[in-house]
Each structure stands twice: as C-alpha cells, then as structure tokens.
C-alpha cells in the first residue's frame, strides 16, 4: 500500500492518522504541505526517525523545491513525479 500525505504534520493529524492504519513496511509519500514532515531538526524529527525504521518514507522533490526545502532527514527517499507514478504502479493508494 502507498499512503499519500499532503498536509503539514504541524497543522494536521493526517500523518499520525495514516500511521494508525498503515501496516509496517508499507510506503508513505509526503507531498504538497506534507513534505515539511521530512525536514531535519524539527519538533517531529525524532518521531519521523522512528517512522522511517518501520515504513518506506518518500518525499516529492517538486513540492520540496517549490517550498525552498532542500534538506531531508536520513532514511527518507526523494522521488519526482515519475517516481510518484512508479510507486502507484507498485501499490494501491490511500489518500489521507
């Protein structure tokens, strides 16, 4: 399963809600405002580090560029829209 999270974890519960239901080992793509969850040094960085050990976490490059975010935490993989399509090829998709 691919879980799509498009809201900032500082504003919305959708990232945490997604984790309540997502099976360990599944994939999570952070896009739109969701990408802020991938920034190093934030208040949720420790939480995100533990999430990356249980899930495959991806972040959408185009939405990072748009927002001036150029650093992401270790354990998170950057993908572009072609990579997003690739993840959808491999997985059913849940939009949170």
């Amino acid at each position: 399963m691919l879980h799509l999270v498009n809201k900032s974890p500082f504003e919305s519960m959708s990232f945490e809600d997604c984790l309540k239901y997502a099976a360990k080992g599944s994939s999570i793509l952070l896009y739109e405002d969701g990408i802020y969850g991938a920034m190093p040094g934030s208040a949720i960085a420790d939480r995100m580090a533990s999430v990356t050990s249980d899930y495959k976490v991806y972040v959408l490059k185009e939405d990072m560029m748009l927002r001036g975010v150029d650093k992401i935490m270790d354990g998170i993989t950057e993908v572009d829209y072609a990579g997003f399509v690739g993840l959808v090829e491999e997985n059913k998709t849940a939009s949170w």
């Binding site: 399963m1 239901y21 997502a22 099976a23 949170w96």
Partner: peptide
C-alpha cells in the same frame, strides 16, 4: 481494530477515503 484497516483496503479492487 485499526490494524485490520490496511488489510481491508488491500482486499478491494479500489477504494475511496
């Protein structure tokens, strides 16, 4: 329980949230 949710989703042809 919450841990049954992803399995239910996987069983579907398609689903909406």
């Amino acid at each position: 329980e919450a841990d049954a949710v992803e399995k239910m989703m996987e069983e579907q042809k398609n689903f909406f949230i």
